[in-house]
Amino acid sequence: MVDQKIQIKHLDFYYGKFQALKEVNLSIPEREITAIIGPSGCGKSTLLRCLNRMNDLVSGAKVEGEVLIDGEDIYQPSTDLVRLRKKVGMVFQRPNPFPISIFDNIAYGPSIHRFAAKKELPGIVEKSLEAVGLWDALKGRLSEHALALSGEQQQRLCIARLLAVEADILLMDEPCSALDPIATERIEELMRKLQKNYTIVIVTHNMQQAARVSSRVAYFYLGELIEFGSTQRIFTTPLRQETEDYITGRFG
């Protein structure tokens, strides 16, 4: 039995009066890629943002239930948000490197969390860029502006800056939707490589992508978890008719 890194129990989520997630129960295993799929507006992003409490920023949002990460409920009043978000990193749909140099993008995390001395930063930058396959291309250009990079490189940089703070869960919300197919393939390759050390939760609209990278799939519809299981089983023998309709493209 694999370790459960994230356990979501009886999770209800409301934007004001609107209930965006209904009684979600889901266990996400450690060091695997779990894909969340479902039609637009079914609450995939909302669920992801519950896992690092980014939804706290939305006024009127309300959470009920539990989200355990490494056995600890992150919705306890005593939860240290800074520590939580250091551990649970997020990659956004549109690559959003900070408008500063490549080096400073990576150094930002270690410096806000004050766990690295200035002289350790170059080492951390190299290690992080190495891990996302950018080091060879960028080692001579570290002082350049991050926005000068290509979309794919920007997205890799955004992943690298999470590795620099030693995150161990990576939440990715449609990380490839702004990239071309070749870049997408290369990011997927990177994800497969990272899963040896990181727990990855990816939201995607692309069935092939879910099939290619993930080992587990959760299908959501209208805020409810319809089906969850190994990728192979979901794509070959879905138990629920709705799931089958969606993955075969027969869905609305």
């Binding site: 690092n52 930002y108 703070v165």
Partner: peptide, 27 residues
Amino acid sequence: VPRGYREGSVAMGATKWQTIRRIVLPS
């Protein structure tokens, strides 16, 4: 200043003030 910068910073565990000082004001 694009929302993405602030979100990216906060999602990394930066506090509001760190985000303002290190990301928003320079941009």
